[in-house]
């Protein structure tokens, strides 16, 4: 009797827990179609206009809340984000995978040092890393821009790829590599034909994670981006600081949908392998 009562309370709590996570998200999606230009939280009808507005098309609504150049700046920010995310994903996937292989395959004295070194950027609070990078770049006279952002993102994304690939390596079947070597394949052939296909899901998973985190990073980018190198999160943060406009609803909804799609794809990919 008593235990079913406990279970019921837990189930109600669970429902509220999910409501706390998802009700705000559902709200922002619904209200991004609200045609009320004065108070965006009072429903006055369905419209697609905010979506047209962010892409710079003239609509009935945006005459009241017109941004002259914000569409260009938004698209430039998206472009910057994509450049940064693809570069950092490539660099950190290669370096992270190499490090994971090295620490998995070889036993050496500095092993624990390397493990610590790779975990450190992940636990370091964003603001500390951002400040440190800013002070570093400025005192060595490096201009703040896309390059500084890419370097900054790589310092912590290598660690994420390293962790994901290491987990995959830990579950790998060593006997296949030994068989390949016994059959006379050289190290490179063994790597390409045996090791790489086995760890590939981990590498792709790590790369996806790195891409998402790089696209989303706000705090570190905020400190080390230059005037012309605003990324999407920094741009939205700036917009929010100046005041809430209905267009941000539409931008938020698009970003929500993109993140959900990428995350779901990532999960699907991981489960298939």
């Amino acid at each position: 009797m008593r235990r079913t009562w406990v279970k019921r309370v837990l189930a109600v709590h669970g429902a509220l827990f999910l409501l706390f996570i998802y009700a705000p998200i559902v709200m922002v999606v619904v209200y991004s179609f609200n045609s009320n230009p004065i108070n965006m939280m009072i429903w006055s009808g369905f419209t697609f206009d905010w979506y047209w507005t962010i892409f710079g098309y003239p609509t009935q609504l945006n005459e009241q809340t017109l941004y002259v150049d914000s569409t260009d700046r938004l698209l430039a920010a998206v472009q910057n984000s994509l450049i940064v995310a693809t570069s950092t994903t490539t660099i950190s996937t290669v370096l992270g995978t190499m490090t994971a292989l090295a620490l998995y395959r070889y036993r050496f004295r500095a092993q624990r040092f390397y493990q610590g070194l790779l975990y450190m950027p992940m636990v370091m609070p964003d603001i500390v890393l951002g400040i440190a990078l800013l002070v570093f770049f400025v005192s060595f006279g490096m201009a703040l821009g896309l390059i500084s952002i890419i370097i900054g993102h790589c310092t912590f994304l290598i660690s994420y790829v390293f962790v994901v690939v290491s987990a995959r390596l830990a579950g790998m079947d060593d006997t296949l590599e030994q068989a390949s070597a016994d059959l006379g394949a050289n190290e490179w052939v063994t790597f390409r034909r045996i090791t790489l296909p086995q760890i590939l899901p981990g590498v792709i998973g790590g790369a996806l994670l790195a891409f998402i985190i790089s696209m989303d990073d706000l705090v570190i980018t905020y400190f080390i981006s230059g005037v012309d190198s605003t990324t999407l999160p920094v741009f939205i943060y700036g917009m929010l600081r100046r005041g809430v406009k209905p267009e941000i609803n539409a931008i938020a909804t698009i970003m929500l949908m993109l993140s959900f799609t990428i995350a779901t794809l990532g999960l699907y990919f991981r489960r298939r392998h």
């Binding site: 998802y22 998200i25 989303d216 999160p233 939205i236």
Partner: peptide, 15 residues
């Protein structure tokens, strides 16, 4: 939701 941009998640609470 962890994969959704931090700014977007906070923007929702501002709203």
């Amino acid at each position: 939701p962890f994969f959704v941009s931090l700014v977007v998640r906070l923007f929702i609470w501002v709203l």
